[in-house]
């Protein structure tokens, strides 16, 4: 990749102190319509951990997540200041200073939303969709990759007989695991989860929590949740968003 070569040199003084960190922010702030949503956030997250952000609703937790895949840019409006560094397998990247296309970034930083959002197509096509976007066309290989992603999301056994059925026919919990499988399709190193269980019943919620523990093996997970007990169960690091900033909770 061309876009990280020069920055690795410029940032080498950072490398020692943050050698194990996957996600680093320096005085990160976000404002919308001249109104500050949050500011002076300094964060360092190690690899293979689950970090959870809690806080009152409307505090800007969801927007905070979208800072890491630049999805807020799709809303039109808003302004980020400060530095966001992500460490990918091939080096540390400043996602706001380098000319990194948003689509490229979002292929490496997956995201799952509060409400399951399967696209109006079959289960198979939904999971294969990100690869198609990235330009892959080989069919035989695709089936294998789809199965792998569905297995990672603990969904394959439930849907293996109806991969060609409309994804919207699945139950809410299955839909959400489908969305996780879809996000895992491109093997992201970082996964953003925006209250992934808040629209689900207790049983589906439990299944997703189980799954989160497995995900830690391959990704660094940054999630938003407002269930204190869930956070205590699954998260390694807990932060709280209050007074327009992020504080480490005990």
């Amino acid at each position: 990749m061309v876009w990280n070569g020069c920055w690795r040199v410029a940032l080498c003084f950072d490398n020692d102190m943050a050698s194990a960190s996957k996600i680093i922010t320096r005085s990160l702030a976000f404002s919308y319509d001249k109104k500050t949503l949050f500011e002076s956030i300094d964060l360092e997250l190690p690899e293979h951990c689950i970090a959870a952000v809690t806080g009152p609703s409307g505090a800007g937790k969801s927007t905070f997540l979208t800072v890491f895949n630049r999805l807020w840019q799709e809303f039109g409006g808003g302004n980020v200041s400060g530095t966001v560094l992500l460490r990918f397998a091939d080096g540390l990247v400043d996602i706001y200073r380098e000319h990194l296309p948003a689509s490229e970034l979002r292929r490496r930083v997956g995201m799952v939303f509060q409400k399951p959002n399967p696209l109006p197509m079959s289960i198979h096509k939904n999971v294969a969709f990100p690869l198609r976007l990235a330009g892959h066309r080989k069919r035989g290989e695709m089936d294998h990759l789809v199965e792998k992603a569905l297995r990672k999301a603990h969904l394959f056994e439930e849907v293996k007989d109806r991969l060609r059925a409309d994804a919207r026919a699945l139950s809410g919990g299955q839909q959400q695991r489908l969305c996780i499988a879809r996000a895992l399709m491109l093997e992201p190193e970082i996964l953003l989860l925006d209250e992934p269980t808040s629209s689900l019943d207790a049983r589906s919620c439990g299944k997703i929590e189980e799954l989160l523990d497995d995900l830690k093996q391959s990704c660094t997970v940054l999630m938003v949740s407002h269930y204190q007990d869930q956070v205590r169960r699954v998260a390694d690091l807990v932060f709280e968003m209050t007074d327009q900033t992020l504080i480490r909770s005990a």
Binding site: E74, P101, S103, M111, N117, P120, P130, A183, M185
Partner: peptide, 25 residues
């Protein structure tokens, strides 16, 4: 809005999102 954001979050370019998701819908 959720449909609008789905493909970009999966790494779709602007036109890919329009052509593959928004227009068919």
């Amino acid at each position: 809005a959720t449909l609008r954001l789905t493909a970009p979050a999966l790494g779709a370019r602007h036109w890919q999102n329009i052509y593959r998701v928004l227009l068919p819908a």
